[in-house]
Design a protein around this nucleic acid. Structure first.
Lengths: 146, 146
DNA sequence: TATTGTTATACTCTATAACTATA
DNA sequence: TATAGTTATAGAGTATAACAATA
């Protein structure tokens, strides 16, 4: 199961990931959402419920880092779509690999208990509107660290 | 059960709490830890793994707001202990009351499932070092909002 | 010499206001 | 007139460096 509880070990792990891939936490989250397919900035703004100016600065980071690209929107000339580059997809894979290893504390639960926890959390997050699909819990083959 | 998953609704709730009690999120967290009894600044610094200068500014907020007090440490004259005032204890009660109502998404789980989730999360957080007692999950009489 | 805490400062994160271009 | 996005700027949040007092 994914490192869902951003507390203790998993919280530190997110910062570790950001250093490893040389991106800020906000940029990593935006990149994960974008890995599902190109989107106009305004979609990102509504997904993250942030100010448009802040999203501009986040996408600036993604472009400077070479992991995403602004492109003209096909039908609306005011808008720009943001697309993940090949290097960006590689970064996404690295992030998901690191974050999919559960914190070592998961070792105190049996496999059956981990499956139950996963199911309950999945239903819980499904019932919360506005959580992007890539950030919802889902199964993983990995075993706990530590 | 407490609003443990700081995602979606519960995340917004924390910000709502901060506005209601006129404190920053960091100050609320420090106040919760201090409600367990007076502590020297250095303890808070190690609990929150932050810089001492930042803890100085957080305790400044608590003192200006009248919810905590710096007092001389009984044996170490370099140190200061931080104590919650009566008004501070009242604020703690209000914070705990608001945060103990589970997000409405918990309504998708049966009571039995909520108890299982609580047990699993309790064991998980018990296995994570460095999480202050007041921030661990625990039972609550309240029903989900919404 | 090491530790507790503060001050001054700087850097990161995020929002507001004013603006351009397009719908 | 309203919407998509940018720029410039300001405000929170958090850290680093230098320091005073005490251990």
């Amino acid at each position: 199961m994914q490192a869902l509880l951003l507390t203790g070990e998993a919280h530190n792990r997110l910062h570790e990931v950001c250093q490893r891939v040389d991106l800020t936490p906000a940029a990593v989250k935006a990149l994960l959402v974008l890995s599902g397919g190109p989107r106009p900035m305004r979609d990102l703004v509504s997904t993250f419920r942030c100010d448009p100016s802040y999203m501009t600065s986040i996408v600036d980071v993604l472009e400077r880092r070479g992991v995403a690209l602004r492109e003209p929107h096909p039908t609306d000339r005011r808008a720009k779509t943001v697309t993940v580059t090949d290097e960006g997809q590689e970064v996404v894979r690295r992030v998901q690999e690191i974050m999919s290893v559960p914190p070592s504390s998961f070792g105190v639960l049996t496999d059956a208990e981990q499956r139950i926890l996963l199911e309950l959390l999945t239903r819980l997050t499904d019932a919360e509107p506005g959580i992007p699909a890539v950030m919802r819990p889902r199964p993983s083959a990995a075993s706990p660290t530590g």
